[in-house]
Computed example of a mutant assay.
Amino acid sequence: MYYVYIHKDKKTGEIVYVGKGSNFRYCGYNSRSSEHASMMKSGKLEYIILKYFDEEEEAYTYEEKITNQYKMLNQGKFNISIGRRLGEETKIKISNILKGKKRSLETKELIKRNHARPHAKEVMMYKDGILIKRFRSSRDAGKFAATQGICSYGWCGRSLKTGESTKPTKNFPIGGYRFVYMDDKIQSRKDQCI
Rank of each mutant, 00 (worst) to 15 (best):
R158E: 00
H7M: 09
R158T: 06
Q75T: 04
L50A: 04
Y52V: 04
R25E: 02
K121A: 11
G142Q: 04
N79P: 03
Y70W: 15
I80D: 01
T90W: 02
H115W: 11
S165I: 07
M1V: 06
E64S: 15
D191P: 03
A141V: 08
G76P: 02
S33F: 01
I132M: 14
E14P: 06
F172Q: 12
R85I: 13
K20A: 11
Q187S: 11
G28S: 15
I82R: 06
C193D: 04
L73Y: 04
K190Y: 10
V4R: 05
D183H: 13
F24V: 01
H7R: 03
L160C: 13
G129K: 07
E63A: 02
Q69E: 15
F144K: 06
K108R: 13
G21R: 00
I48P: 14
K99N: 08
I6Q: 03
Q187E: 14
G19N: 10
G163I: 03
I82Y: 04
H119W: 06
S188E: 12
K65H: 08
P173R: 06
G163M: 00
R113G: 03
P173D: 00
S31R: 11
K170C: 09
E58T: 11
N30S: 15
M125H: 07
M1K: 00
Y181P: 12
Y153W: 14
H119E: 11
Y3C: 10
G13K: 08
E109N: 10
Y181M: 07
V18E: 04
K167L: 06
T162V: 11
K167C: 07
Y60N: 08
K71N: 08
K8L: 12
D140P: 03
V123E: 03
M39C: 02
Y5G: 11
K127P: 12
I6E: 00
G83H: 07
I48E: 14
E55L: 13
R113D: 11
V16M: 10
S138F: 01
I80P: 00
Y52G: 10
G100R: 00
Y181W: 10
R117Y: 01
